[in-house]
Design a protein around this nucleic acid. Structure first.
Length: 241
DNA sequence: AAGTAGCTCAACCGCATCCGC
DNA sequence: AGCGGATGCGGTTGAGCTACT
C-alpha cells in the first residue's frame, strides 16, 4: 500500500531557507504557536513541507536557542549523557537547555568522537579502546522490550547474533538495571520504587512504565542511579525541553 | 592563483512512535 | 484491537567554507 508522502513534493521548496521564509515562519508561530506542522506551511504562506518547517524552527529559529560554541562543561555533560543514553540525541538535548538534538548530534560526530578517540576511548562504548574485557557491566532498561523488538542503544543493534556482543562478550546488551543490592531487601522509605526512565525523567508518564511513581513526581522517590540524585550526575538542575 | 582535501552544519529522508477514530 | 495520519527521531547527505599544497 505505502504511506502517502508527508507533503506534495512537487510544490515545495527544498534546500536552504531564505530570510523571507524564516520571517514568515517566525511571524506565524509567534501569532499562532507551534503545532499542526502539516497545515502550517499553507497557513503561513510557505512552499515548504511541515517537517521542514518544524526542523527549521526547532533547530534554528527557536528564540531560546543558545547558539555559539559548546563549553567544556557541556562537552563533559554530553559525554556523560551519551554514555548513559547512547545515540538518544533528543533525550540528551532535553537535558541541555538551549541546545538541539541536531546540534548535539553534529557536535558529537565532528568534535567529541574525535576527542575521545584521541584520548584512546571508544566513543561507542566509552571504554579505553584496548581495555581487556571485564566481568561487570551496567545494564539499563528504559522499557520492557516487545517481542521481536530491536533496540539500538548506541552500541549497535541488539539481535540474537549481535556482532557487537560477539566482539565484546562482557557487554550485557539486555540493558536492564536493578536497584542497588540493599534495596532488594530494604524497601524505599516511602514504599515506592522507581524505574531508571522515570528517575531520569525519560518516561513522561507511568502509563507504559509500570513503576510505582503513580504520578507523584519522579523527584520524590527512587534510588540514586549513578548518583543522579546525590549530585554525582545532577540532572535535576537541568530543565526539560 | 588554482585545485582539492577536509571539516562543519543545515537540511533531507525514511522509519518509528504516538494518538485519535 | 486495528488502522491511518501526524509527528518525532536518528542517520545521512551535500553545499559552503577553510586550510593546505
Amino acid at each position: 500500500m505505502g504511506r502517502s508522502p508527508c507533503c506534495e513534493k512537487a510544490h515545495t521548496n527544498k534546500g536552504a531557507w531564505t530570510k523571507e521564509e524564516d520571517n514568515r515562519l517566525i511571524a506565524y508561530i509567534r501569532a499562532h504557536g507551534e503545532g499542526c506542522w502539516r497545515s502550517l506551511p499553507k497557513a503561513a504562506g510557505l512552499l515548504r513541507c511541515g517537517k521542514s518547517c518544524r526542523l527549521r524552527w526547532i533547530n534554528y529559529l527557536r528564540p531560546d536557542l543558545k547558539r555559539g560554541n559548546f563549553t567544556e562543561e557541556e562537552d563533559e555533560l554530553i559525554i556523560k549523557l551519551h554514555s548513559l543514553l547512547g545515540n538518544k540525541w533528543s533525550l540528551i538535548a532535553g537535558r541541555m537547555p538551549g541546545r538541539t538534538d541536531n546540534e548535539i548530534k553534529n557536535y558529537w560526530n565532528t568534535h567529541i568522537r574525535r576527542k575521545l578517540l584521541n584520548q584512546g576511548i571508544d566513543p561507542a562504548t566509552h571504554r579505553p579502546i584496548n581495555e581487556p574485557p571485564t566481568v561487570a557491566a551496567a545494564t539499563i532498561s528504559f522499557s520492557t522490550p516487545k517481542k521481536e523488538e530491536k533496540i539500538t542503544d548506541g552500541f549497535g543493534t541488539k539481535d540474537d547474533k549481535n556482532p557487537v556482543q560477539e566482539r565484546c562478550p562482557d557487554l550485557n546488551l539486555e540493558l536492564r538495571i536493578s536497584p542497588p543490592y540493599q534495596h532488594q531487601h530494604e524497601p524505599l522509605r516511602n514504599g515506592n520504587s522507581l524505574c531508571f526512565a522515570c528517575s531520569l525523567g525519560i518516561e513522561s508518564s507511568t502509563k507504559g512504565c509500570g513503576c510505582s511513581d503513580n504520578g507523584t513526581g519522579s523527584s520524590k522517590a527512587g534510588y540514586d542511579f549513578l548518583g543522579v540524585k546525590s549530585g554525582v550526575l545532577d540532572y535535576r538542575s537541568l530543565e526539560m525541553k
